[in-house]
């Protein structure tokens, strides 16, 4: 009798929102790193900055599409309810998206910006006033954006975690899990985009940086998922029963084989295999293109599946109907 209130659109939105947060974070970080007084990864910083706003913009549009009353979405902005994670999330998401667009604008190459404004009618004076070079403020914008990108990454988890009626979600670990998954997806998406960009082939030190970043995030994610599982199975009955959904129940296969296996451990193994020789034995880092393609695609696949499993299994969990599942 239990129907699903939130479906694939929400899954996709949670994934895209997290992806943008991760892209912004990785790009902003790359923008800050220097070697000998020179920016260490300027191309990563630019690629990430230019990509970051789009997923969340698309995701937010999907969110509006999912509403029962699409045209009333503006009401989200005419109210502020601090007790509602969705209300807080609305403002977080909006501010983050704006910052991400401003940041992308600050990274627009001069000629792109010129041709962009060239398409705007000359009579639109107000718009043309925006045609300024703000590239000098990149670091400031990134600094302002960091907390918002982290906030969006966390919020997607809090949206679910704050629901006390759904024992599968109702733990503080979901927020961190979604955050690290988001950061990992961002690093992976950035590497994927750099590898696919044939006009400016990726350099090995860039691959190494992004792979290292992704390993860190995946490991952090694992450090959250394992306690989630351990604590859940040791918790009160309702949580234990909810975890059955992925420990023997309908989402077991997709969780263990496709998410944990293909989406997390396999890409982690590939990335460690790539990085370990140079890290441990001082051998040169190769940065195999195909391995990078495989690992990053799998990470993105895993990030999507994590949202899918949580949105669907979470809604199936409850305090009073779990008995029927057994």
């Amino acid at each position: 009798m239990h129907e699903l209130n939130w479906g694939l659109l929400i899954v996709v939105y949670l994934f895209l929102g997290g992806l943008s947060a991760g892209l912004f974070f990785a790009a902003g970080l790359a923008n800050y790193l220097e070697v000998d007084g020179q920016p260490a990864y300027p191309r990563i910083a630019r690629m990430g900055a230019l990509l970051a706003p789009w997923p969340v913009a698309i995701g937010s549009a999907l969110l509006i599409l999912d509403l029962g009353n699409m045209l009333r979405f503006y009401k989200l902005f005419t109210h502020f309810r601090w007790e509602s994670p969705m209300s807080i999330g609305t403002y977080l998401l909006t501010v983050f998206t704006l910052i991400a667009f401003v940041y992308a604008f600050s990274w627009l190459p001069e000629d792109w910006r010129r041709s962009l404004f060239g398409k705007v009618p000359a009579t639109w004076k107000l718009v043309h006033r925006l045609n300024v070079d703000i590239s000098a403020h990149r670091k400031t914008i990134a600094m302002v954006g960091f907390p918002f990108s982290i906030g969006v990454g966390i919020y997607t988890g809090v949206l679910l975690g704050a629901v006390s009626a759904r024992p599968f979600w109702n733990t503080n670990l979901v927020a961190q899990m979604f955050l690290f998954s988001a950061l990992s997806s961002g690093a992976a998406a950035l590497l994927l985009a750099m590898v696919l960009n044939k006009r400016e082939p990726i350099e090995t030190h860039e691959t190494k940086f992004l792979i290292t970043l992704d390993i860190v995030f995946i490991v952090l994610e694992l450090f959250i998922i394992l306690p989630y599982l351990i604590h859940g199975t040791l918790s009160v009955l309702a949580v234990k029963q909810a975890l059955w959904l992925i420990l023997g129940g309908p989402y077991t296969l997709v969780f263990w084989v496709f998410f944990m296996g293909l989406g997390l451990l396999v890409p982690l193994a590939i990335e460690v295999y790539e990085l370990a020789p140079s890290l441990l034995k001082g051998k040169p880092f190769h940065g195999d293109r195909n391995l990078a393609l495989a690992a990053t695609s799998l990470v993105l696949f895993g990030g999507f599946l994590l949202r899918y499993i949580f949105v669907y299994a979470g809604q199936a969990s409850s305090f009073h109907k779990m008995g029927l599942l057994h």
Binding site: H2, D66, G68, R166, S318
Partner: peptide
């Protein structure tokens, strides 16, 4: 606005969504 967050938050599943009115 028909976001259905309340339906998910209700421990008793006491709410329903009306497709016609959204």
């Amino acid at each position: 606005i028909g976001c259905r967050y309340c339906m998910i938050a209700c421990p008793y599943d006491a709410r329903y969504f009306v497709e016609e009115t959204g």
